[in-house]
């Protein structure tokens, strides 16, 4: 038996909206740790890794590990039927072939349940090693979205160059070229406290800062990499999940674009770089 209840149903709705255009079908892994997913886009250039920890749910029960194969477009259709302030409960039997989504409004006087057929999905799982990245950039997720959107009207790819003091986004196309440089904000402007949690990752609380780009750079080595803007723009659909985005880059490695989901986990996107021949 798997049962997971999330008070803030809008989180699940936003997560689905952020990944449904990138990945068609995916296996959700339900374990005692939480509700997780790893899936690549059809061209195997990008990957999404989602983790919603069991501790972040209002109620969570998972008697044994269950894999639920879902078509994300269909899942999104069902979740769109939930209001933003609804509580959402997902339920599945161990051997069942359906998942039930139950929506409850705040007054608890409207209760809906939707059953969706599960699918058998043959997917490849990638082993992603823990890596020390050469550059880590934290910036406003809105600003990152804005930059990716603006540059994609000029060119198809973006070159991201991170130095100690700035991160520079460059593109060029038929009509010309564009450079956007965001300077690192002085230390302490990015107010946050990190609390190490027992499993995977860290919990970061950010307090809203009043102005500026709030760019925080942690650099071992300057890095310059080029990526297809189409994918980055797709990742930016997760912008509403978190005020900040974290980019991790290392020479000749896929970039990791992470949005934290408050008190629950994260959605991470990996994108393979373009390499000059």
């Amino acid at each position: 038996m798997f049962e997971a209840r999330i008070l803030q149903g809008s989180i699940l709705k936003k997560v689905l909206e952020s990944i449904k255009d990138l990945v068609t079908d995916a296996n959700f892994e339900c374990t005692a740790n939480g509700f997780a997913l790893q899936a690549m886009d059809s061209s195997h250039v990008s990957l999404v890794a989602l983790m919603l920890r069991s501790t972040g749910f209002d109620h969570y029960r998972c008697d044994r590990d269950v894999t639920m194969g879902m078509n994300l477009l269909n899942m999104s259709k069902m979740l769109k039927c939930a209001d933003n302030d609804d509580t959402i409960t997902m339920k599945a039997d161990d051997a069942g072939d359906v998942v039930t989504f139950m929506f409850e409004n705040p007054k608890a006087d409207k209760i809906s349940d939707f059953q969706m057929k599960l699918m058998d999905i043959d997917t490849e799982h990638l082993g992603i090693p823990d890596t020390e990245y050469e550059a880590t950039v934290k910036m406003s997720s809105n600003e990152f979205q804005r930059i990716c959107r603006d540059l994609s009207s000029i060119g198809d790819t973006v070159t991201i160059a991170v130095t100690k003091d700035s991160v520079k986004f460059t593109t060029s196309g038929d009509i010309g070229e564009a450079n956007i440089t965001c300077r690192r904000t002085s230390d302490g402007d990015m107010k946050e406290e990190k609390v190490k949690t027992e499993e995977d990752g860290e919990k970061v609380h950010n307090t809203k800062s009043s102005e500026g780009q709030n760019v925080d750079i942690d650099l071992q080595e300057p890095v310059t990499l080029t990526f297809a803007l189409r994918y980055l723009n797709s990742f930016c659909k997760a912008t509403s999940l978190c005020e900040n985005v974290r980019l991790q880059l290392s020479k000749e490695l896929p970039v990791v674009v992470q949005y934290l989901i408050e008190d629950m986990g994260y959605v991470r996107f990996y994108l393979a770089p373009k390499i000059e021949e």
Binding site: M40, S43, H44, V45, S46, L47, E124, H125, L126, G127, I128, P129, G155, D156, T157, T159, T226, A228, L253, P254, Y270, A272, P273, K274, I275, E276, E277
Partner: peptide, 14 residues
């Protein structure tokens, strides 16, 4: 702008 790599050239399948 260069040749697009796939993730499989960086990460192995498990």
């Amino acid at each position: 702008g260069g040749r697009q790599k796939t993730l499989k050239s960086f990460f192995s399948t498990t």
